[in-house]
């Protein structure tokens, strides 16, 4: 790890999440580890079902049953939070970890004014009285770019457009000045024209406050522009994690290579996009060894029996036997 200064804001160690169903116990996350430094934006990419959102839910302690954290730990500024009692965890949510959801149309309670929802959240986490909380709410709306906030604050959610609602959601997530924000595909449900604005807004606000962000998304363009580091997830495991520039330009993990190869480029001549053969395994049928081995063109015998651990390669970590020194002769 290059992050040596101070304790990371968020540190996830061997986090394992399981969903117990009648037929089997499904592992949605399998020993996932990563750190997020203060003020850093960590992008998390991967296909649907790779465990991106589950990671966010697990960190904030909101995995719906029958899911549960089966192992590992989550540390917020050095202190464990995954084993906190419910009430203590509730005080962490919103206050120290904020969360932005995918769909702003359904994230807000349709029956209450924006002001009621903002003031409620502010007052739950601070000692401000109603008038102070309202002033704070107006200031926040102004900051997230809602025009005429002192007038618009008393509107209902349905009176805002999708992009404006996502701004309100961001204001709600930032209410209590959390040190860490989880943005779970914050632009997926928005118009393309609004997406860039929302991403820029999240980035600016977090930069101003020194807030760290975990940005979950499908959109590699957003990651390349916004994130400092990126984690590529596959079948509930981290395949590769490292500085965004390196991972995007020169991915190491065969899956990451495939993922980056599937992005069309605006410059240069139109090439045929690379496609990864096959599909991600279902959680009930993850192959032994490396989860990617059935789709990997470079797989060798060890990949079918032994799960690769994250290995440091320069500033990065890769979970692939190809980069294990002891296999150097095979990889070459």
């Amino acid at each position: 790890m290059t992050v040596k200064e101070a304790v990371p804001v968020l540190s996830v160690r061997d986090l394992t999440v399981e969903f117990v169903t009648r037929r089997a116990t499904l592992r949605a996350l399998d020993r996932v580890s990563f750190d997020v430094a203060r003020g850093e934006v960590l992008g998390v990419v991967g296909e649907s079902g790779a465990g991106k959102s589950v990671t966010g839910s697990a960190i904030i302690g909101l995995i719906d049953p029958p899911g549960r954290i089966a192992g590992g730990e989550v540390l917020l500024s050095g202190a464990r939070i995954d084993d906190l009692p419910q009430e203590a965890m509730r005080k962490v949510r919103g206050k120290r970890i904020g969360m932005i959801f995918q769909d702003p149309l359904t994230s807000l309670n349709p029956l209450y004014r924006i002001s009621e929802q903002l003031i409620e959240t502010i007052r739950v986490h601070t000692d401000l009285d109603a008038a102070q909380a309202r002033a704070r709410a107006i200031a926040l709306l102004d900051e997230v770019g809602i025009p005429a906030p002192e007038r618009r604050i008393d509107s209902y959610p349905h009176e805002f457009s999708g992009g404006m609602r996502q701004r309100v959601v961001i204001a709600l997530a930032l209410c209590a000045e959390p040190e860490f924000i989880i943005a779970d595909e914050p632009t997926t449900a928005l118009d393309v024209s609004v997406q860039a604005q929302i991403i820029a807004l999240i980035k600016r606000l977090c930069k101003e406050r020194g807030t760290s962000v975990m940005l979950v998304t499908h959109d590699m363009g957003v990651i390349a522009e916004t994130a400092d580091r990126v984690a590529v997830m596959y079948a509930g495991r981290i395949a590769e994690i490292g500085p965004v520039r390196e991972v995007v330009k020169q991915p190491l993990h065969p899956y990451a290579k495939g993922l980056m190869g599937a992005i069309p480029s605006l410059e240069g001549e139109a090439k045929r996009l690379v496609q990864i053969p096959g599909t991600m395994p279902r959680l009930s049928a993850i192959p032994p060894g490396c989860a990617f081995n059935p789709r990997c063109s470079q797989a060798f015998s060890r990949c079918h029996v032994e799960r690769p651990e994250l290995i440091a390669v320069g500033d990065r970590k890769v979970a692939c036997h190809l980069y294990d020194e002891s296999n150097a002769e095979i990889a070459a």
Binding site: I60, R90, F101, T106, N109, L111, V124
Partner: peptide
């Protein structure tokens, strides 16, 4: 199960308040 209940939880709103204020009226 609605998203806004999940979001209210993520904002740290006390469970009683979520149940009787946010969920009941809906």
């Amino acid at each position: 199960r609605a998203d806004f209940i999940r979001f209210a939880r993520a904002r740290g709103i006390p469970e009683r308040r979520i149940e009787f204020r946010h969920a009941l009226r809906n």
